[in-house]
């Protein structure tokens, strides 16, 4: 892959072929394509898995998403974002019950474009062993690098990936934390390019702060990432909350754009996963089982 894969280069010039595409499983899913707060008449020209789409809103704020040849695509509004699909989703967008709790502040962090596979973006979000090295002195710090055993599984009842009892010592876990604590986490993957993180909430220790990553696949090696949060935090300004999360994500971006191969391997034959990578492995197993392979590499090279 050459350096700058711009949106222009990533998208085909013709309408998509009529035969069944190889990524049918992922085509029938919901993906974030824009922010509700930024809908306008002229529209956001973007893409979903190589197909150009336009996301616009009428004067009443109702969203409209059109695809190649002007066909109307399914659309939903959830978690402050506009969601759409190239196919026919059979399920509703996943639920996050914590988002309905009174007192929650919702934070639209805003989009960041990353030259990597949409699946790589999710895998990185699920990882904690990188905290002391990529998010130094914020989410983790040497010498507190050990990753203790935790549980990661594919939950058959909801058909989602869940990692629980994840713990990591952090010098400054969030904008509202003062001093270091051992933060507890849960990670959840309810859709192929979406992840939900639940972390210890310092102002309300019996609740979880919710931080999500909604990833829009533009091409197999290009995505728009939409972080979103539902927090109990009445003190920090919205600007600070957004800047903090953006800073974290930009640190991750420098990793994501320099991994080889750029696609997410579903065969770890050229890698050495450890017990600390259990969530990533569970995620890859779940992708494999569902044939969610857009952005994936099937054979290790």
């Amino acid at each position: 892959m050459t350096a700058q894969t711009t949106l222009q280069q990533a998208m085909p010039h013709q309408a998509p072929p009529h035969q069944a595409p190889p990524h049918q499983a992922m085509i029938d899913e919901w993906y974030p394509v824009g922010l509700v707060s930024q809908l306008d008449r002229s529209g956001r020209h973007t893409a979903l898995m190589g197909e150009p789409i336009v996301v616009s809103g009428d004067d009443a704020g109702n969203p409209l998403v059109t695809g190649g040849n002007g066909r109307i695509l399914p659309v939903k509004v959830r978690y402050g974002h506009v969601w759409s699909s190239l196919g026919t989703p059979t399920k509703d967008i996943f639920s996050i019950p914590e988002a309905d709790q009174p007192g929650r502040r919702f934070v639209d962090v805003g989009v960041v474009r990353v030259r990597c596979s949409p699946l790589r973006a999710v895998e990185n979000f699920l990882d904690i062993a990188h905290f002391p090295f990529v998010h130094t002195d914020v989410l983790g710090a040497e010498p507190h690098t050990e990753v203790q055993n935790y549980t990661a599984e594919i939950r058959a009842d909801v058909d989602e990936v869940w990692a629980t009892q994840v713990k990591f010592y952090q010098p400054q876990a969030s904008k509202s934390a003062s001093g270091g604590i051992t933060t507890e986490y849960m990670y959840r993957v309810p859709a192929p390019t979406c992840s939900v993180l639940y972390k210890t909430c310092p102002p309300r220790p019996s609740e979880w702060d919710v931080i999500t990553l909604f990833v829009q696949p533009l091409a197999e090696d290009l995505c728009d990432v939409w972080p979103w949060m539902a927090l109990f935090d009445d003190e920090t300004s919205m600007t600070d909350l957004i800047h903090f999360q953006q800073m974290i994500f930009l640190q991750d971006r420098s990793i994501l754009e320099n991994q080889i191969p750029r696609l997410l391997p579903l065969d770890p034959g050229m890698e050495i996963p450890t017990r600390a990578d259990l969530t990533s492995i569970a995620y890859r197993r779940w992708l494999k089982r569902h044939d969610y392979t857009y952005g994936a590499q099937l054979v290790a090279r």
């Binding site: 579903l266 770890p268 996963p273 492995i281 890859r284 197993r285 054979v299 290790a300």
Partner: peptide, 11 residues
């Protein structure tokens, strides 16, 4: 590490 790798294995 062996267990974690084998949980995925080849495609």
């Amino acid at each position: 590490m062996m267990e974690v790798g084998c949980l995925l294995g080849p495609i």
